[in-house]
Design a protein around this nucleic acid. Structure first.
Lengths: 114, 114
DNA sequence: GCCATGCGTAAGTAGTAACTTACGCATGGT
DNA sequence: ACCATGCGTAAGTTACTACTTACGCATGGC
């Protein structure tokens, strides 16, 4: 097993605690113990959150002596950015359609599922 | 009560089904029944998802005859964009810090929590 | 006035997931 | 060789949440 299973980045960042863990890592690399010190949860909980963030490709690890240093990763964020941009543009486009429809309520403007 | 309670947009888009509901609405306004037709869940389920999306300021409603037309809303997306951008920039910055640290392992570069 | 359409909400249920404590393995210093 | 530090994982519990069916209210056409 090469660990092909992946995790939805949306799901990974949905949990407030886990998002704080990621925010902390994004701010600067750190060990599990360091990260857990700033948070109101136990160290194992942080470990489990980091596991999910790893599977979502939002963070990376590397050993340094006894510590495991976590740092943020662009790969997971990239997909989110693209998807969010798509929603943004579609929203603007739908605004236009609705506005046009307001002037010609009889004609049928482009809908999501014609 | 003026419904001040709000919902975390991250949480709102974390559920796959709810994200599909939003994607459908973003693609073009539609009634609940129309939206539910494309999805493998019941109409009440879609209603409940739309309620969450409303509370997250990701969609808007307006009555038109007997129907309630849902359309996407920028307000909820905007916060997500800003937060995501922040993570993106912090990640780039942390990359730089880690790279610099690799050349001078003795000095202490800027960390998240000094 | 009456029936059909469209929709929100209530109630109940099953699955998930976030946390805790306990444990075990590896690394580094002495 | 030994102990301390750092961490991941297992097991168990509790809380949440996404879904279903059933119901009730409003709007529009006849």
């Amino acid at each position: 097993m090469v660990e092909t299973s992946t995790v939805d980045p949306w799901h990974a960042l949905a949990d407030p605690t886990r998002r704080e863990v990621f925010a902390r890592v994004a701010r600067g690399q750190g060990s599990v113990t360091e990260i857990a010190r700033d948070l109101p949860v136990s160290r194992p909980a942080v470990s489990q959150h980091l596991r999910v963030l790893l599977d979502a490709r939002l963070v990376d690890v590397r050993r340094q002596g006894r510590e495991r240093l976590y740092q943020p990763r662009l790969s997971g964020l990239d997909g989110l950015r693209r998807e969010l941009d798509s929603y943004w543009n579609q929203t603007l486009s739908t605004f236009k359609d609705v506005a046009e429809q307001a002037y010609e309520p009889t004609a049928a403007p482009p809908e999501g599922a014609p």
